[in-house]
């Protein structure tokens, strides 16, 4: 469903290409983990998919095909019909990603307001359902809260609810658990797994944490300096890493047994 073909992105302010020819495919229902250290180009890849590239500040070529339609060169009007509706995005810092002055519930339902002609009451019901689906306790109460009144974990659940409320076919998750406590992190991962199993939504999960990726993803792609160095099913990549860099990354995972 999502095909990235030979994607290049170069920011005017940098000498090196941020993304230097990435080719990737995500099939229906897959969860792809995009791994790499910071500056490896994984976030820029995701931004290209989400239509968030600052187009005036960079050169780009290649193709980003969602269900066969190119997004990379699509005009803004077309892009808007995809953003939010077919592609939901969850960002790293839930506290900053929420508009501080708007009630959480309204932000969850914002996508519906933009893309459907549901009545406010219908939107409310759909938002509450989505908030229930991400296992927020007492959605009614959370609906009325402002972002600063919620914890990071709750906010991230609300952000996920906002991303799935319209049932997009692809979820882009840009390090969604990095800013959270370890226990909350585990809960969110469980939640994402459950959502994938129940609705079959595809996901692109960006992380620098291989451990997290192994728990969640069906496929893994490893990036280094703008290039894709390794790609395959999670099991393949973890047990038969082909590339030196991938092996380094895997070796860097702390293993419990060593210390027991």
């Amino acid at each position: 469903m999502l095909e990235i073909k030979d994607l290049h992105v170069k920011f005017h302010t940098r000498d090196r290409e941020a993304v230097a020819g990435v080719t990737l495919t995500i099939h229906d229902g897959e969860i792809l983990g995009l791994v790499g250290e910071s500056g490896s180009g994984k976030t820029v890849t995701a931004m290209s998919v989400a239509g968030l590239l600052p187009r005036r500040q960079c050169d780009y070529r290649g193709e980003v095909l969602l269900d066969g339609q190119d997004l990379l060169h699509a005009d803004r009007d077309f892009l808007r019909t995809v953003q939010g509706k077919k592609i939901g995005v969850v960002f790293q810092q839930p506290m900053n990603a929420m508009d501080p002055l708007i009630r959480v519930g309204e932000q969850v339902g914002e996508v519906l307001r933009i893309h459907t002609d549901m009545s406010p009451e219908e939107r409310r019901r759909a938002s509450l359902e989505a908030m229930d689906a991400v296992e927020l306790d007492d959605p009614e109460a959370v609906y009325r809260k402002y972002p600063h009144e919620l914890s990071g974990g709750m906010l991230q659940r609300a952000m996920i609810a906002a991303a799935i409320v319209i049932r997009p076919s692809l979820l882009l998750l840009d390090e969604p658990t990095t800013a959270l406590d370890v226990t909350i992190q585990a809960q969110i991962l469980e939640l994402l797994k459950k959502l994938n199993a129940e609705s079959g939504v595809s996901m692109m999960f960006i992380s620098h944490n291989l451990n997290v990726v192994r728990k969640l993803c069906t496929h893994v792609a490893v990036m280094q300096r703008g290039l894709l160095v390794e790609e395959g099913s999670t099991a393949d990549v973890f047990y038969h890493p082909q590339h030196e860099y991938t092996r380094h990354l895997i070796d860097a995972i702390p293993r419990r047994r060593k210390y027991q």
Binding site: A50, G51, L52, R76, R80, T81, V82, Q83, G84, K85, I87, G88, V89, F91, Q93, N96, A97, M98, D99, P100, L101, I102, E110, V111, I114, H115, M159, A162
Partner: peptide, 26 residues
Amino acid sequence: EKDYVQTAISRGNDRQGVLVGHVLKN
């Protein structure tokens, strides 16, 4: 330049929606 603007764009807001719906109030 704040993050919530990115969020608003990623939800399919047009320029007007971002500016009037979010940035204006802030």
